[in-house]
Design a protein around this nucleic acid. Structure first.
Length: 793
RNA sequence: GCCCCGGUGGCGGAAUUGGUAUACGCGUUCGACUUAAAAUCGAAUGGAGAAAUCCAUAUGAGUUCAAGUCUCAUCCGGGGCACCA
């Protein structure tokens, strides 16, 4: 007898999908559009891993589900090919990034096709294709024209191994996100995108998004808005002022000293002959210190400058110190220290024996007994403001400072501007050239793309510049008759991925980055699926969207309606899969072991709740294979027959459950419901209606097998609907509890559910129930919705 | 340290609005088929007990006719932030 042969079935359908292109998306449709995408992969040399499969299969299940509901679905595909991993891989394998990328893309495409994804392959994009990065450069120029791409000299994170600067988002615990090496601080002139311009909008609009709360919280924390005040402190015996940022201006009477960050530009003017050397030494060491060293040593260090500021409220002198616990990048790089009500200032005051002055009385009911109370309270020792609640005092003191022109309310953000220069070869060249005086000029749009020159040796060479600097001819460019020199930095790869979702709408358009008509039809993305980049990529696309909406290029301000953020798949031992541990599961091995793509896909949907990490279990893969095998047998072997009416309830119940579960992205329970249904059909028999319904419901998960079944049955794949009338049976089961404990089950005719008195008396007459009820019950509760009677005895 | 989310059989996990705890899968055990094995099919499977029954959703209290679900406290695990003034 013939047996379930997934390899043969899958080959047949994949060949058909390849030639017939059933997933081609066009704008010509009366049906509502549905645009789904995964976070496009970096095509590594290792090929697809099981995490990719989970990611792509979620998108595929939804794509097929909506397509079966006859929505106009677009599900494109692309490759994120620029960047360090690709360049480092090419270095390691001794090839060029160009050819390594081509090989890896071909492999990824082949493997994605082997998984049977419903992708419109005519919408394939690749960020290192000149036809693509021409438009990345165009995007850069739009930001440049509006002043949102600018250069600034400042201390930046520098990775000595990868020999490039990194954005804040790419530094994790003081280490490079790519190689894990500790990063250093280096003062350099670099390109930035002014994302802070959109800080408020990025923060305020995040709440309304249909995204996981976890991601929304991370974005809010990252933006880190805090409302406070700027206060100018006059430096004694000079005309100078030190600006500080504080969220607690109400504690200003308790501000007994000032602390500056070691990078603060005023330090050299504040020191005197006695302190100059010591302060310079301290600053030099502090600036050199790595972020990790600064974090590890929480013991406060600092040095006195010799200068004093005047507290404008008390008139008292405040010594001005320098300490590395104050960060230059936040606020004004200077703080007014209130040791009585701030733990860090308190530690510092203790160590250096500085004055502590209490100015906030904590409420009597407060259980905060820390050395320095940092909550709200009533002001004391605060002149005319004593007795005022701290919240009100902030406003009053702000007003007092404002009248005298020495302070004002101010909002600050933790988020910094996005550093986008990279001193590496394999990236999108920044379309800028410099004149003789070093001023940057845009490369005219008709000269785009600025192509990456092909070079023999593209490795970083310790010059702090990319290999583009070595291409003497390439460097020369003439703009408006003037000879200029090209920028040799390339763009952070995140720039390339900040607009690719819009390119999908018109992937081959030569006249536009994104065609306005196509954008209007397809965008924004309805469902976006990924497992990474919670703040970086997902914040950058929102930033670019708002910017390009402001320029009139996009008719929406949020690029992604719904975000699904799925968990990782770990090794069977629960640990992260990694080559070095040798515990990597190769999805292609699973397929070629004879399980096939349908089993792999369905297993990864069944593995657990979509948002949670899950451990790979090879035995459960077998369980899913057995399930598909049973589906096959019902359709192609001699299965026990049943009349449609016998199985109607199970069928409609399953249709409802699977439909609702897919809408909720509860893929694991959707598959479980299908398994339950098949178990039921094995028991009572199967009708043609059941096979058609089963195949249709199965298709998003196991499209090859389902297509094979539908072909044999002569049915289309339109998503089935359920009728509530089939969900009720002639008799209903009533649960009887005594004091909340299950004691009996009654079977009553369906129409009796309306007769509360009858059901209550049936319950009380039940022999099993009687055993637990002596005398008159205190109370009898009937819950129709739960089909339950509870007797309180 | 602060914020958020969890803790359910031997394992992964169900339980959607406070209403039958343990769906589905794995594993285990038994049986059928087979010379045998694999595959497949069927049955059983939270714990204790001969049974009636009792006890079980981290622990302890509480609210309720009814709690895995709500409240409080404690313990444990995971994630995020972390010298951000």
């Amino acid at each position: 007898m013939e047996r379930y042969d997934p390899i043969k079935i899958e080959e047949k359908w994949q060949a058909r999908w390849e030639s017939e292109k059933p997933f081609k998306a066009t704008e010509k449709s009366d049906a509502p559009k549905m645009f789904l995408a995964e976070m496009f992969p970096y095509p590594s040399g290792a090929g697809l891993h099981v995490g990719h499969v989970r990611n792509f299969t979620i998108v595929d299940v939804l794509s097929r589900f909506y397509a079966q509901q006859r929505l106009n679905v677009m599900r494109p595909f692309g490759y994120d090919t620029f960047g360090l991993p690709a360049e480092n891989y090419a270095i390691k394998t001794g090839t060029s990034p160009q050819s390594a990328t081509k090989v890896n893309i071909d492999n990824f495409r082949k493997q994605a096709k082997r998984l049977g994804y419903a992708i419109d392959w005519d919408r394939e994009i690749n960020t290192s294709d000149p036809a693509y990065y021409k438009w990345t450069q165009w995007c850069f120029l739009q930001l440049f024209k509006k002043g949102l791409a600018y250069q600034k000299e400042s201390y930046q994170w520098w990775c000595p191994v990868d020999q490039t600067v990194l954005a804040n988002e790419q530094v994790e615990n003081g280490c490079c996100w790519r190689c894990g090496h500790e990063v250093e601080k280096k003062k350099m002139k670099q390109w930035f995108f002014k994302i802070t311009e959109y800080a408020d909008e990025l923060l305020d609009e995040v709440d309304a998004l249909d995204w996981p709360e976890k991601i929304k919280t991370m974005q809010k924390n990252w933006i880190g808005r805090s409302k406070g005040s700027i206060v100018n402190f006059a430096v004694k015996d000079t005309q100078q002022e030190i600006k500080v940022f504080t969220t607690r201006v109400d504690t200003i009477f308790g501000a007994t000293f000032i602390v500056l960050a070691p990078e603060h530009p005023m330090i050299s003017e504040l020191v005197n002959d006695n302190t100059r050397e010591k302060v310079a030494e301290y600053c030099k060491n502090a600036i050199k210190k790595s972020e990790i060293e600064r974090q590890e040593n929480k013991e406060k260090t600092g040095v006195f400058t010799g200068a004093y500021a005047i507290n404008p409220l008390t008139g008292e002198e405040m010594p001005i110190w320098v300490a590395d616990y104050v960060l230059m990048g936040y606020g004004e790089g200077a703080v007014m220290a209130v040791p009585a009500h701030d733990e860090r200032d308190f530690d510092f005051a203790q160590k250096f024996d500085l004055k502590v002055k209490k100015v906030i009385e904590k409420p009597e009911n407060s259980d905060d007994d820390s050395a320095c109370y940092h909550g709200e309270g009533v002001l004391v020792n605060s002149g005319q403001f004593s007795g005022t609640a701290s919240e009100d005092a902030r406003e009053q003191i702000n007003a007092w400072l404002g009248e005298r022109g020495i302070g004002s309310p101010k909002t600050t953000y933790k988020m910094r501007d996005w550093l986008i220069s990279r001193q590496r070869y394999w990236g999108c060249p920044i379309p800028i050239a410099y004149d003789k005086d070093g001023n940057p000029h845009a490369i005219p749009e008709d000269q785009l793309p600025v192509m990456i020159p092909e070079v023999e040796d593209y490795k970083p060479d310790n010059t702090g510049r990319s290999a583009l600097a070595k291409c003497k001819d390439w460097l020369k460019v003439t703009i408006d008759g003037e000879e200029m020199t090209r920028e040799t930095d390339t763009l952070d790869g995140y720039a390339c991925s900040s607009w690719y979702l819009w390119r999908y709408a018109s992937p081959h358009d030569d006249n536009y980055a994104w065609n306005p008509e196509a954008i209007k039809y397809w965008e924004p993305v309805d469902v976006y699926v990924g497992a990474d980049h919670a703040v970086a990529h997902l914040l950058y696309v929102r930033f670019w969207c708002k910017f390009f909406a402001d320029q009139g290029f996009l008719p929406f301000r949020e690029p992604i309606k719904k975000l699904i953020y799925h968990g990782y798949i770990n090794a069977p031992d629960g640990k992260k899969m990694s080559k070095s541990k040798g515990n990597v599961i190769d999805p292609l091995d699973v397929i070629n072991d004879g399980y096939g793509a349908d089993t792999l896909r369905t297993y990864e949907m069944f593995i657990g709740p979509v948002e949670l990490d899950a451990a790979w279990d090879p035995r459960s893969v077998g369980g899913v294979y057995r399930f598909l095998n049973r589906c096959w047998s019902l359709c192609f072997a001699d299965a026990k027959k049943a009349e449609p009416v016998q199985t109607a309830q199970a069928r409609h119940k399953t249709i409802k459950k699977v439909t609702e579960d897919i809408y909720r992205c509860n893929f694991n329970t959707a598959v479980a419901a299908l398994m339950e249904y098949v178990n039921e059909l094995y028991k009572v028999g199967v009708s043609n209606d059941d096979l058609v319904a089963l195949a249709k419901l199965l298709k998003p998960f196991a499209p090859h097998l389902a297509s094979e079944m539908l072909e044999k049955l002569g049915a289309d794949d339109e998503w089935p609907t359920w009728d509530d009338k089939h969900l009720v049976s002639d008799t209903v089961e009533i649960v009887v509890q005594v004091n909340g404990k299950l004691r009996a089950k009654l079977s009553v005719p369906a129409e009796d559910i309306e007769d509360e008195e009858k059901i209550k008396s049936l319950a009380l007459e039940n022999e099993k129930v009687k055993k637990f009820v002596s005398g008159e019950p205190k109370k009898v509760i009937f819950v129709k919705k739960a089909k339950l009677v509870n007797i309180v005895a």
